[in-house]
Simulated assay, not measured.
Amino acid sequence: METSSIAALVMDFFCADALDVAHQLGIPAYIFFPTGANNLAVFLRIPELASTWDLTKEDVGKTPITVNGVPLIHASDLPREVLEISEDHELFINVFRRMREANGILTNTFESLEPRAVKSIKDGFSFPTGQAPPIYCIGPLVTAPDKGVTHPCLRWLDAQPKKSVVYISFGSSGKFSIDKLREIALGIEKSGHKFLWVVRNPPSDDPKDPYDPLAEPDLDALLPEGFLDRTKEQGIVVKSWAPQVEILNHESIGGFVSHCGWSSILEAVINGVPIICWPLFAEQRMNRVFLVKEMRIGVELKGCDEGLVSRDELAEKVRWLMESEGGEELRNNVNAHRINGLEALREGGSSETAFQEFIENFKIQNA
C-alpha cells in the first residue's frame, strides 16, 4: 500500500468513486453530504429499495418509501434521475451505495433539527448490515449576513413593518414560463400582503419564450399589464438576483415562498422565517415533506408537482401564513429551531462537538 502525507480526504458525495484512490493510498476518506439527515437516511436505503422497482411502469412514482425515522414519502418525491432507466440512474444508485464505504459522513444539519433521522442512521437502520459509518452533523453551514451589503431592496425593507413582507425566490436555477410568472404575480397581488419578489427570465430552451438567461429581465414584458403600477405600494420586484442572506435576516421578513433547496432552508431556519413550499427539482420535493411533516416549519402549495399552482392557491397560502394561528405556530417552531441551530455552532454545541469528533476520528485512523 502506498502512503501519503495527507491526513484525511473529504469529498462531495458525487465523488464517491474517489474512495478507491483514498483506500489505495491509505488515507481516511469521508463524504460531505450537503443536505440533511432525512435525505441521507433515504438515499442510503435507495440501492436496495430501487432494486425492487419496475421503472417501466407509469405508476412507479406512487411507490411508498418507508425508512425508519423518516416521514413517509413516495418515489415521485425523489430526484427525477432515480426513476429513469438511464446512465444517470445507475450513477445515483452507485453513489448512494458507495457512500456507505466511507470512514464517516459529514452532513449539513444539526441534530435537534432532524433527531429521528440522525438516530436512525446512527443505529444502522439505513444500512443492510446494520453497521453504519460515523455520521457528523456539523451544520447549519450558512453564510452570515454582511452588514456592509447595500441594495435598494434592503432600503425598501427598512421602511416596512416588522414581519410584514413575504420574500419570494426560487434559487439560482428556478425559472418559470411567462404564463406562470404572471400567475404568480396575480397571486401575490391578490394576497394583499407586502412582498419582495426575485424574477428571472423564463427558460431559454422554451421555443415559445426564447429569452437570454443572462440578460436583465424586462419586467413590463414578463409581468401582467399594470401589475407594477398597481403594486408599487405593496411590494418590490428585483431583477435576477437579490442578497438573500441579508433579506432573510431582515426583521421585516415574515415568510418565504421557496423552492426548498437545502441551503435556502437553512438560511430561513437560522433567521426564523417559515416557508411556503414550492419545490421544483432534485431533492426539493423530499425536503417539502420533511419541512411540513417533520420539522413543522413549512406549508404545502397544492398543484406545484403538476406545475399548476393557481393564483388563488398562492394568495390563500400567503394569507394563511401571515394571518392565521397556524402560520404563527410555524413561526414559533422555526424560531425554536433558530435558537437550537445557533447553539449547535457554539463552543460545546452539538455541531461543534461533532466536528471535533470528526477530527479525532481521522487522527485515530492515522495512528
Rank of each mutant, 00 (worst) to 15 (best):
V309W: 00
L154N: 04
G326R: 03
Q234C: 00
S51C: 08
E323W: 00
E225R: 13
S264I: 04
I364N: 14
E111L: 11
Q244V: 11
F355M: 15
E267L: 01
L219P: 12
K208I: 05
A268H: 02
G174Q: 06
P71A: 11
N103I: 08
H74C: 12
N103R: 10
E329V: 00
N287L: 02
G192D: 05
I270F: 10
I27H: 04
G327S: 05
A132V: 05
V198P: 12
K317V: 14
S204C: 08
F96I: 01
Y167R: 03
M99Y: 07
A144C: 03
Q234N: 01
R200E: 13
G272Q: 11
V269E: 12
V269A: 10
I138R: 02
I253D: 09
S120L: 07
E300W: 00
T56H: 06
L78G: 04
F33Y: 15
N103C: 13
L106V: 07
M11V: 15
E81F: 05
F362D: 06
L321S: 00
G255M: 05
L248W: 10
V199Q: 07
P134M: 12
K293V: 01
K208S: 14
R80Y: 14
D212Q: 06
V238H: 11
F170P: 00
N366V: 04
E343R: 15
G348N: 11
R45N: 13
A242F: 11
V273A: 07
I184S: 03
